[in-house]
Amino acid sequence: MSDGLDGVDDFGVNPFEETLPDTPLEEVPPEPIRNIEPEIAPKPIEEERPLAPGLLNYYSRYFQLTTADFRKRVLGSLSLRNEASPPDLYGPLWITATVVMSRFLGSGLFTLCIDGVFGGISTEVKDSSRQSWKLVHSAWLFYAYTLLTPFIAQKLLATNFIPLVSTYGYSNVTWIAGCLLLSVVDEFRRLGKNFVITIIEWVIVSLIALKRSYSLYNELEAGRKSLPLLVVDVAFCVAAKILLF
């Protein structure tokens, strides 16, 4: 019966006893050890390849900014000075969303303040289908302009796309103030002086277009090459006035 220890105590000679061989041992050429794969030198660690612009994660770097950076850029886009800042996509995305929201909520907010809070009159939601229509138009108009115009500018000026989107996105800050101001002015239509109100609105839109053109001219740094883009921008401001106000 096997005890599971076969071969343990089957030594013919004491393996620990030192003995000299009678005949010299023949030199046996060392045989290569089989079934053991030769050691392969470890491959050098490959450097991480940069992400291609077609991948979504590529744009992650343009969303990593601090509140201070963002504030600085927003204030810079409101001022007339040209301050160079690293481009980002957070601003273009959310500033444009704010423009759309300020157009949608602005008029209702001022009506609410004047009638509901100060006047104590129960306010009803203005023509909701008209409001929804303006919301849809402001969304497609502002987002399409902010994202598509940089394509044209890229071809025209032979520069990178992302900085152009950033520039156009931050230039929309002017429209936030503009939308709120136009909403306030629009409330005075109830006084019955439509002609005067319309002129004031066109003046405000002209000022917005002027400010945007000046900022874009400075930030694009392309001299006369940027003139067609400025014409397109003025046309955009006129379209926004006609469609939204």
Partner: peptide, 15 residues
């Protein structure tokens, strides 16, 4: 979720 992933501050530069 996508915005948060983009904004996630990661030292390796990946989201």
């Amino acid at each position: 979720h996508n915005l948060s992933k983009f904004m996630g501050n990661n030292e390796s530069g990946s989201p």
